[in-house]
């Protein structure tokens, strides 16, 4: 986390490409996560409810509690590490305080709700499915915005930032 201490990040020839590379990897991670979730559990009301509750007509069994727990356990770890790093970079680069506090709050809170709503959908029924889909997209879009804004602030010429 040395980048939190360096004063002029844009002028630092070592940290600029390092952070740039990390941000590109975060963007790739977010894209791949969307594709994987769509394939693994589904991102529409229909596909997710088939995954969670099964479908007798198509002979599809519902997933087990272990499956949901293991999925969320590893997801929580990747979410917390990615969003913490992204939040720290974004806080350092974006100088508009209200905007950064707002985006960090929305992204992090919806990522937390993502975990809780998937549990809710599994235990309390389909009411939580659209809510889960909503917060899933909100935190992904929020993280995309944070990454892209950070990349912009890192590489855009000084004139463009004013």
């Amino acid at each position: 986390m040395k980048f939190t201490l360096v004063k002029d990040l844009r002028g630092n020839t070592l940290l600029r490409p390092l952070l740039g590379g990390l941000l590109v990897f975060i963007l790739l991670f977010l894209s791949a996560d969307i594709i994987l979730k769509n394939d693994h559990i589904g991102l529409t009301i229909q596909t997710l409810s088939t995954t969670l509750y099964g479908n007798e007509e198509e002979y599809i069994e519902p997933v087990t509690f272990h499956f949901i727990l293991e999925l969320l356990h590893s997801d929580i770890f990747f979410m917390m590490m990615t969003l913490l790093t992204l939040g720290a970079i974004f806080s350092r680069l974006c100088e508009k305080n209200r905007l950064r506090i707002l985006i960090i709050n929305i992204t992090m809170a919806s990522a937390l709700l993502d975990v809780l709503f998937l549990f809710g959908a599994y235990f309390f029924g389909p009411l939580f499915i659209p809510l889960w889909i909503g917060v899933f997209w909100i935190w992904h879009v929020g993280a995309f915005i944070m990454s892209l804004l950070s990349l912009f602030h890192l590489f855009a010429p000084k004139k463009a930032l004013i």
Binding site: T4, H73, S91, L112
Partner: peptide, 25 residues
């Protein structure tokens, strides 16, 4: 620092969830 602290607050909430799911597993 305020923005960092906000990220850390959320990070610890995730950590509590991580430990809880680990114990439940």
């Amino acid at each position: 620092h305020q923005a960092y602290r906000l990220s850390i607050i959320y990070f610890t909430l995730f950590a509590l969830l991580l430990l809880t799911t680990g114990a439940t597993l």
